[in-house]
Structures are given as structure tokens and as C-alpha cells.
Simulated assay, not measured.
Amino acid sequence: MGAAVTSYRALFPIAAEAVAWAADIMRSRPPGTLTSKGDRDIASDLDYEIERGLRARLGAATPGIGFLGEEEGSTGSAEVRWVLDPIDGTANFVRGIPLCAVSLGLLHGTEAVLGAIELPFLGSRYTAAKGEGAYVDGMPIRVRDTRLLSQAIVAIGDYAVGPGAAAKNHLRLALTAHLAETVQRVRMTGSAALDLAWLAEGKLDAAITLSNNPWDMTAGVAIAREAGAAVRDRDGAEHRSDSAMTIAVAPALVETILSLIDGPVAG
């Protein structure tokens, strides 16, 4: 661990204060100007303002820890670094849809070891650190013990946009169709952080994203894993920041879900 970090749990108050600060800005300010980042992908003025603000605040509070933000990239150490999605679910946020989050995680190498997710318009804060359990508003949470797909509510990530979207969406659409035939309900919230937090709390039974950006996943993976979820890559290996996919599920469903993705759906 970096020399400036003595324990992951010691960083809880810093992470919680950071996401609370960002959530206050989201609740009190309009999105501002929207900037195109490519085909059907946008960032708002607040995305940039929150990221710059937290880069500065966390740099001052934890100078030995690096920082990776979705909008403006990486600074400082790559061994241990904060990873931020300033507004996860920007498309929802700019339309006034409350399914959006501030997502702040900590990577140690390629492992997600701490997470803080604030849902500004739903009034919940999720936190976890490796070996310390997962919490919502200070209360312990645990994944649901769902054992049958027919009883599962499954969230899936957004369909792909940008270069190669058609090929990427072939698998996504096939998975959606197969899930629709087998699970209780399929949901697409538009926020990976929210999906993973709700899995940890037992509101969902699986959160499947057929991609893996560290700013989208680090905080939620840490929280889901500490709540007892199995979090895997497509090949069944433990999820890391360089994994191809993010497949987080109630433990009893992991092999069934993996077989759907790597079996008849992929074919």
C-alpha cells in the first residue's frame, strides 16, 4: 500500500465527505453546458466541476494517493489511486431522472478496495472497504440469497454507443432477450454505480455490464463484493480493473449467469 495509506477504513470519512460535497452540488445546481464526447455521449459542466473539485480536495487530503477521473484522466500514483465518476448517469441527470450517482472508489493495483456511492436524489450513501463490510447510511447490508433465475431481478448496463456499437450490442441484445425469457424482471437504470449498490442492498440479484471502465465500476465493485456478491469477469475470474466485463451476482446464481453469457447467448 502507498506510504500515505495506513488502512482503507481510515479513508472512509474522506470518501464520504467527498461524495457528500459532490452530491450537494448536483442537488443545488443545473447541469450547465453539455459537451459531446462522441456518438451519443455527453458530459455536463457539473461533471467537470465536480471532478476538478474532488481532484483538488482529495489531493490535499491524501497527497500520497493518485487520482483517475472519467473526464480528465490520471494524475499522481498509479499504485493506489482514487477513481471517480463525478456523475454516473449524466444522461439521466440532465433530464431530471433521479437515477444517478457520485461514484468514488479506491484501486490498489487492479483491485477495488474501497467505495463510496452517493445517490443525491434518492437520499442514500453506500460505503465499503476491503474486510470491513458494506453499509448504506451506516447500516450493514448484504446481498439477497436468491437461488433461482425465475426469482431474480437483473439489471443490465446501457447498450453500447460509438465505434463498434453494432457488434457490441449483438451480445447485449441477445443477453437481454434470454434474460427476458428466464428471470423475474430485467432493469436498465442507466447507472452502473446504482446497479451495484442496489445489488449490495438486496434490491437487485444481479448487475451485468458487458464492459468495464474503472470509473464506472471501482466503487460499486468494492461495495457489492463486501456485501457478499460474486463479482467476476466473463471467464469467471475475479473482477479486476482490467477485466473485460463486470458480472456481479448473488453467489448462488453466478455459474448460471456466466453460462448464459459464454454459452447460448454468445453463440
Rank of each mutant, 00 (worst) to 15 (best):
T182F: 01
V143Y: 00
E49L: 13
M217Q: 14
A152M: 07
G267K: 15
N212S: 13
P214H: 11
E72T: 15
G89T: 10
L122H: 13
R172T: 07
A4I: 13
A244N: 12
I156A: 06
G220A: 10
L99Q: 11
S243L: 00
A128E: 02
E255A: 14
M139D: 09
L258A: 03
I247D: 00
A200C: 11
L210Y: 03
A165S: 13
R57G: 04
E17V: 03
K37G: 04
G59Q: 05
G105S: 11
S211G: 10
D195F: 00
P31Q: 07
L196E: 04
A266W: 12
A224I: 03
A250Q: 00
M245D: 12
T35G: 04
L58Y: 01
A116K: 01
A230W: 04
G32S: 08
A230G: 10
A180I: 07
I156Y: 02
V136S: 02
A56K: 12
R125K: 13
A244R: 14
P140V: 09
G59W: 00
P13F: 11
S243W: 01
G66E: 01
A167I: 10
D47I: 04
A43R: 05
A20T: 12
P120R: 03
V265Q: 07
K168F: 11
A222P: 10
G2S: 14
S74Q: 13
Y8N: 04
S36W: 07
P31R: 05
I141P: 01
L258E: 02
T209V: 09
V136C: 14
A91P: 00
D262T: 15
T62E: 11
G76C: 06
V83R: 00
D233N: 15
L173K: 14
A20F: 06
I153M: 07
T209D: 00
L106P: 01
A227G: 01
W21C: 04
A129N: 08
R225E: 14
T256F: 03
A165E: 10
R142T: 11
L175N: 04
D45W: 05
L46S: 06
P63G: 10
A207Q: 03
E181R: 15
A219L: 09
A222G: 09
G32Y: 08
V254E: 14
A160L: 08
A56N: 08
L84W: 00
K168Q: 15
A112W: 01
S191N: 10
I14L: 13
Y48K: 05
S191F: 05
R57H: 06
Y135I: 09
G162N: 14
T33V: 15
P120G: 05
A112S: 14
A193H: 02
A60S: 15
G32Q: 07
T6M: 10
E118L: 04
I141C: 00
R187E: 14
L253M: 08
L11M: 12
P63D: 11
A91M: 12
W215Q: 03
T218Q: 05
R172W: 04
S211W: 13
S243D: 02
W215P: 08
I14V: 15
A222V: 08
G66Y: 02
G66T: 05
L106N: 03
F12G: 01
S103V: 06
A227C: 05
L11I: 09
V5S: 07
I153L: 11
T146S: 08
I141H: 00
E238N: 08
L258M: 06
K37Q: 08
T189M: 10
F12P: 00
D262G: 14
M245L: 08
F67M: 00
Y135G: 03
G263E: 09
K130W: 09
I50N: 02
T146V: 15
